[in-house]
């Protein structure tokens, strides 16, 4: 039986693959059907995943095993329920309390993480001796990293109008950003094409058994 169900599963996957690809022709009922099923399944998957990975181990399991020892957990439970009051306009203000705790905590976590990993570590990694490289390409690369980082950061300085000589580093920063966006674009294209190849391989290998 599992083999038959697996075959049915492969046919289902092939059907939905064609439903999505049909959009290349134009918007049609098959695409709309697959799109809405995807939305529904995504929401369902997300909810079940959060319940099993966060809510059960952190809240429900602890409360059911030792209720009196985990009474403190009733506070986030109550705050979570208060969050749901946002759905009705009249009771919306109640949700401000849990939201403020979430926002305050996440803002502080982001501040500290950005300060340590994105600011101090990155600045530290840029303060290097450019001539420590063993080859010409390494030395030129190190120089590019220093110049590109400084000019790029300068480009994002919006407190003063950049004109005249002050515009030059900003312009160099833009060039570096464009090269980076191009490289990122190239990577994205490759990732999407590899997904496309994956789908075509599924159709030819798992569904039609044309290739081994």
């Amino acid at each position: 039986m599992p083999d038959l169900m697996n075959t049915i599963g492969i046919w289902l996957a092939a059907f939905f693959t064609f439903c999505i690809f049909s959009f290349l022709y134009r918007d049609n009922p098959f695409y709309k059907l697959a799109e809405q099923i995807f939305v529904g399944l995504s929401a369902g998957y997300g909810l079940i995943y959060v319940v099993y990975s966060t809510m059960v181990p952190n809240l429900f399991a602890k409360l059911s095993q030792d209720f009196s020892g985990n009474l403190i957990l009733l506070i986030p439970f109550a705050l979570g329920l208060m969050m749901l009051t946002r759905i009705y306009p009249k009771t919306q203000w109640i949700s401000r309390y849990p939201i403020s705790i979430v926002i305050g905590t996440s803002a502080a976590i982001s501040v500290m993480r950005s300060l340590k990993t994105d600011l101090l570590l990155q600045v530290g990694a840029t303060i290097i001796n450019p001539f420590q490289g063993s080859t010409a390409s390494e030395i030129s690369g190190n120089l590019l990293v220093i110049i590109g980082t400084l000019c790029g950061v300068y480009f994002f300085y919006f407190s003063k109008k950049q004109e005249g000589l002050a515009k030059i580093p900003s312009k160099i920063g833009v060039y570096f950003l464009m090269v980076s966006f191009g490289a990122t674009f190239g990577y994205t294209v490759m990732a999407r094409i590899s997904l496309l190849i994956g789908r075509l391989e599924f159709l030819r290998k798992d569904w039609l058994h044309i290739i081994n």
Partner: peptide, 18 residues
């Protein structure tokens, strides 16, 4: 190199914003 430089500039600037 150039990509690292630009990504680093974005990260530093975004960190200041955050």
């Amino acid at each position: 190199y150039p990509n690292t430089a630009a990504q680093r500039a974005i990260m530093i600037s975004a960190a200041l914003g955050v």
